[in-house]
Nucleic acid binder design. Structure first.
Ligand SMILES: Nc1ncnc2c1ncn2[C@@H]1O[C@H](COP(=O)(O)OP(=O)(O)OP(=O)(O)O)[C@@H](O)[C@H]1O
Length: 735
DNA sequence: AATGGCGCCCATTCA
DNA sequence: GGGCGCCATT
């Protein structure tokens, strides 16, 4: 038993985490401490020693990609398939349970998953029906409040009880209607996926028992980012066997804004007093300098369990901090860094990641990368499946699978235009309301509808009969064949093919790409896993990272959130300015500021060898009330939290700007002054100053770095040479 | 009913 | 910057 191959290549604590099977366990895995290795080993070990069969294990991962990789790695090591193993994200596992148990909630297993956009459309529709003014109370806001409530496990009843002011009472009304409409539509939103299984578990204890008995071992990754619903989900399912192992790092909890509760991990010991806690504290990923700097930053947080990360790796290079004039200069500096890493150090592009706080920041970077011919890929941003032409095709498929999906039906009923305009739609809605049927049924019964003129009736009949014909083929044809037929019969790509607009060309290509992905899906799967319903579910639950190919030779651009769990030899974090990172909203709230700091910590600890941190003294902003305005920035407070010994600072003065702040920024101004003092403390050498060297001649100071060995200066001389000098020995003359 | 123009409004992060 | 809703025109 002890010789299980799954115990090899593990350090003592890792091995302890893998071997312990006597009860609940919390593995506190610091950044880069080999959490992935432990999870894979533990899963394999459980099966290898016969503690549990694959079908008796529930393993929750953060992305589908991680789930697939874990499964494949274990299968390879065990040289057997792991059929029956439940492994996936919370959302996909919950969707799987809901598909099995749907009827208990008045749903069918062909339910649709609504994204935020679908939710907003539905709410809009409901509010219009309730004669509410959608310009005063906005559907977007209602969706947000409902989602937040669901995250707190507050249903419409509980929300109504707590509703105080007029707006909240109105939202409560909408919330009730929303829940009814969702059931009518046979649809779940993202929050429902997590909540509804709990409702089933509490209403039908025998169903809960079935799953409790089934799962002898429960493994959860990224436990620090679980929300209330996920917490109960795990608690319920592991209540019988109490064989639950959660892995996480409280310093990497970054999803509070969508309901994640760091207390879940902080209080694990209270929930399971008999639990074993193992700390993984040896970092295998980063250089000592990067790790120590990251440790120093995160030490400013208070909500921690505490651990001391250490490393046997080499010290490595200093962290390089760049101050640039604006977002374009910043982008330029990024390309210079990449150029240097690739040309001078011989790195591949895919060893480099550029991270930012908000997706909007990618624009300036993309422009510059294109101009410099640097290959790049963007993770996230406007997603493929969110494009209009893709949503149109998917809406057709959704209606075929789930005719009760009125949001999708409304989208396609007059697209491409077929003469069924808003007036006719209203008549159909009226009929549906009067006869207490769905919109789809109202279309089927259009002959009974006296309000609609015959000419339009015929158009509706043609439309609904085409859909019905296709529905009959659902069981015979593959998902791909159905999709192909939908695109052809409804001429979804035809309308773009006769255009020479670049935009339409792109739409055509996107539809083809979608069809290719469905074809791939049909080839890859068989049986109940190959249905159109399953394809639509996969598409809804796909994560940004799932679509990312790390082997592609290109620089990866993504948000810090997306970078969680990844590692790169070179990491460049941009936009390190107070107000952007940390964001303005978080500055007045300690909890949120700590979360921003954790996000910064996550970013830093993605780097193996080189870490570059950039900020722009001025940046144009498009969101918010000051749209299009330029902001004068101060460097992120997080930059100041990195001890001077670990960083070298550079200022790009190509576009020298005066630091000037208006009154409202006086507090930040204070910080800015601290910063300058901090950088050059007691030194006559200041960034931007000119000096004269006996052999190199005149030069300008790019960076000042104090350390035990003395004051290190980086100077660019008039012949473009850049030298690093120690001020005490260089015999420089100040100019 | 369809189409094109104009003005308004964005929570930042994600499944 | 861009998506969406409203309005005027055909
Ligand atoms: N026992 C070990 N010996 C040598 N290297 C190891 C060992 N365990 C893990 N590693 C290496 O450490 C690196 C980081 O591991 P991993 O990606 O699992 O980090 P992690 O713990 O998930 O970190 P994070 O939470 O920051 O994402 C990997 O490159 C992995 O190969």
């Amino acid at each position: 038993m002890a010789s299980s191959k799954f115990l090899q290549e593990l350090n003592t604590s890792q091995r302890e985490a893998v071997e312990y099977l006597d009860g609940p366990m919390l593995v506190l895995a610091g950044a880069g401490s080999g959490k992935t290795r432990v999870l894979i080993s533990k899963l394999g070990y459980l099966i290898d020693i016969g503690f549990a069969q694959p079908h008796e294990i529930l393993a929750v991962t953060f992305t589908n990609k991680a789930a697939n990789e874990m499964k494949q790695r274990v299968e390879k090591l065990l040289k057997r398939g792991l059929d029956g193993l439940w492994i996936g994200t919370f959302h996909s596992i919950c969707a799987r349970i809901l598909r099995i148990e749907a009827r208990h909630l008045g749903y069918t297993s062909d339910f649709t998953i609504y994204d935020v956009d679908d939710q907003i459309r539905l709410i809009q529709q409901l509010m219009v029906g309730m004669n509410m003014d959608t310009s005063v109370l906005k559907p977007r806001q209602v969706q947000y409040v409902i989602s937040q409530s669901k995250n707190k496990l507050l249903g419409p009843k509980e929300f109504e009880e707590r509703a105080g002011d007029f707006t909240e009472r109105k939202i409560a009304q909408i919330y009730w209607e929303y829940e009814v409409a969702m059931r009518r539509n046979n649809a779940f939103d993202f929050d429902d996926l997590l909540i509804k299984p709990l409702e089933i578990f509490t209403q039908y204890p025998e169903i809960l028992e079935k799953y409790q008995n089934k799962f002898k071992y429960v493994l959860v990754d990224e436990y620090q980012d679980t929300n209330r619903a996920q917490y109960y989900f795990i608690k319920y399912l592991s209540a019988t066997h109490r064989h639950v192992c959660v892995v996480g790092d409280e310093d990497q909890s970054i999803y509070r804004w969508r309901g994640a509760d760091i207390d879940n991990i902080l209080n694990f010991e209270k929930d399971y007093p008999e639990c074993k806690i193992v700390r993984l504290e040896q970092n295998y990923r980063s250089t000592k300098i990067i790790l120590d700097a990251a440790n120093a930053v995160v030490a400013n947080n208070t909500r921690r369990l505490g651990k001391t990360l250490w490393s046997e790796n080499k010290h490595g290079a200093q962290i390089e901090v760049y101050s640039t004039a604006d977002e374009n200069a910043e982008a330029h500096q990024v390309t210079e860094i990449i150029h240097n890493e690739v040309q001078q150090k011989g790195r591949n592009y895919n060893e480099i990641a550029v991270l930012y706080r908000t997706n909007a920041q990618s624009r300036a970077l993309e422009d510059r990368f294109r101009r410099k011919n640097i290959p790049y890929i963007i993770v996230g941003g406007t997603k493929f499946y969110e494009r209009k032409e893709i949503k149109d095709v998917l809406a057709y498929l959704r209606v075929l699978v789930n005719p009760r999906d009125s949001v999708a039906l409304r989208r396609i009923i007059n697209f491409p235009t077929r003469g069924i305009g808003p007036a006719t739609l209203q008549k159909l809605e009226d009929y549906a309301f009067l006869h207490k049927v769905g919109l789809y049924q109202a279309l089927l019964e259009v002959n009974e509808n006296e309000a609609i003129p015959l000419s339009i009736k015929n158009k509706i009949i043609e439309f609904i009969e085409t859909l019905e014909d296709l529905r009959e083929k659902l069981t015979q044809l593959s998902a791909y064949e159905i999709a192909r037929e939908v695109v052809d019969t409804f001429r979804l790509s035809a309308q773009y093919s006769h255009s020479d607009l670049l935009e339409d060309q792109a739409r055509l290509e996107n539809i083809n790409e979608l069809l290719n992905s469905i074809a791939e899906f049909s080839e890859r799967n068989s049986g109940p896993e190959a249905t159109l319903q399953k394809y639509l579910e996969d598409v809804s639950l796909i994560t940004d990272i799932d679509r990312w190919d790390p082997s592609f030779s290109a620089v990866t651009l993504m948000t810090l959130h997306s970078a969680k769990g990844l590692e790169f030899p070179v990491v460049i974090i941009t936009g390190n300015e107070d107000g952007l990172f940390p964001l303005f909203r978080s500055l007045s709230n300690d909890e949120e500021l700590e979360e921003e700091r954790r996000l910064f910590y996550v970013g830093m600890t993605r780097a193996k060898e080189n870490l570059y941190l950039l900020w722009a003294r001025q940046r144009r902003r498009f969101s918010g009330e000051n749209s299009g305005m330029s902001f004068r920035n101060t460097p992120s407070r997080f930059l100041l939290e990195i001890p001077a010994d670990f960083k070298s600072e550079f200022t790009d003065t190509s576009n020298e700007l005066e630091y000037s702040y208006d009154q409202s920024y006086s507090q930040q101004r204070q910080r800015m002054d601290d910063y300058v003092v901090d950088m050059v403390e007691e030194s006559q050498y200041k960034i931007g100053n000119w000096v004269k060297h006996p052999t190199f001649g005149k030069g300008q100071i790019l960076a000042v770095n104090r350390s035990r060995t003395g004051t290190k200066l980086t100077v660019v001389f008039e012949n473009k040479q850049i030298k690093k000098l120690i001020a005490e020995y260089a015999n420089l003359e100040l100019l």
